[in-house]
């Protein structure tokens, strides 16, 4: 029983990381059908922002708190720049966007290498987040994992509320559901796109801050994360968030269980096979947005 719960929590905490890195993608991929391969590098930017802030702010706890909004803005600004300079010109060609943003991600990686050096760097974690929480039954849960879970859930909640309740959220939903009709109704779709891209990229920055708690950060960290993140969005179905949330946790638990029963590498293959099998059943993902648009 203890083992079962332990694995379940491991799965949930893997899922929380997946959710955090995929949330921004769910927004940008969902709204604009844009495959942003540089999303992983925005995560990296968030992580390095934490690192840089720690050079001047000595308190690990304070620097983490400061890093969250700063990383959001840094990554978000990078996203808006990318959108304005390149992606906007390529809306009709989603596959080409993929290749172009991959080129951008290569350059950003090299930039990180030139600025921070190729070896991984380490950030300090606040004291509060280094310990464990002991649960009855001899179970322990690492504090940093709990923090990431809380951050992921908070981000989902904030995003959901923003999409549901604010005028901006209403406009975003309108553009996702039917871009032409939204444009006809007087919504400046290109401005909404830019804002969405800011939010989505900013969420990548948040994910980057959270990942500094789990291990060292380096120039290629984004490449390793991006595929998992895209798989979550593809399987979850684009156009809404709940699919990504469910799938992130499901894949996390599947990965943890597979790892427990076999090895890490076999577990990855199991997850891949499960995804292909799942897409046989629902090729458009878990939830599809039903619209009358003919696109």
């Amino acid at each position: 029983m203890t083992v079962l719960f332990g694995q379940l929590f491991t799965g949930i905490s893997i899922g929380a990381v997946l959710l955090l890195i995929a949330l921004g993608l769910a927004l940008t991929f969902g709204q604009m059908n844009v495959i942003n391969m540089a999303h992983g590098e925005f995560i990296m930017a968030g992580a390095y922002t934490t690192y840089v802030l720690q050079q001047s702010i000595t308190g690990a706890g304070l620097s983490l708190v400061v890093a969250l909004p700063v990383a959001f803005v840094v990554a978000g600004t990078m996203g808006v720049l990318l959108e304005v300079l390149l992606i906007r010109r390529l809306y009709a060609r989603p596959l080409d966007t993929l290749l172009v943003t991959w080129g951008v991600s290569l350059m950003l990686q090299q930039l990180a290498r030139d600025v921070f050096g190729s070896p991984n760097v380490q950030t300090r974690a606040p004291e509060l987040l280094t310990g464990n929480v002991a649960l009855p039954g001899g179970l322990t849960i690492a504090n940093n994992r709990l923090f990431i879970l809380a951050l992921a859930l908070a981000a989902v909640a904030a995003l959901t509320l923003a999409l549901r309740l604010t005028p901006l959220g209403r406009r975003i939903r309108a553009v996702v559901q039917n871009r032409d009709l939204a444009a006809v109704s007087g919504i400046a779709t290109s401005r909404v796109d830019r804002t969405t891209f800011f939010l989505g990229s900013g969420l990548a920055g948040l994910a980057g801050v959270a990942l500094t708690l789990l291990g060292p950060i380096g120039p290629t960290m984004g490449t390793n994360l991006i595929i998992d993140a895209f798989l979550v969005v593809v399987v979850g179905g684009i156009g809404q968030l709940k699919g990504s949330v469910i799938v992130a946790f499901a894949l996390g638990v599947l990965q943890a269980t597979g790892e427990y029963l076999t090895t890490l590498s076999v577990a990855k293959v199991i997850v891949f096979v499960a995804i292909v099998a799942f897409l046989q059943w629902r090729p458009q993902g878990l939830f599809t947005l039903r619209t009358r648009s003919l696109a």
Partner: peptide, 19 residues
């Protein structure tokens, strides 16, 4: 198809290397 296929094919490469 399209982007979905591209991502799946890329995930296949990732899975193969990890294996």
């Amino acid at each position: 198809r399209g982007a979905y296929f591209a991502i799946l094919s890329q995930a296949l490469a990732a899975a193969m290397v990890i294996l």
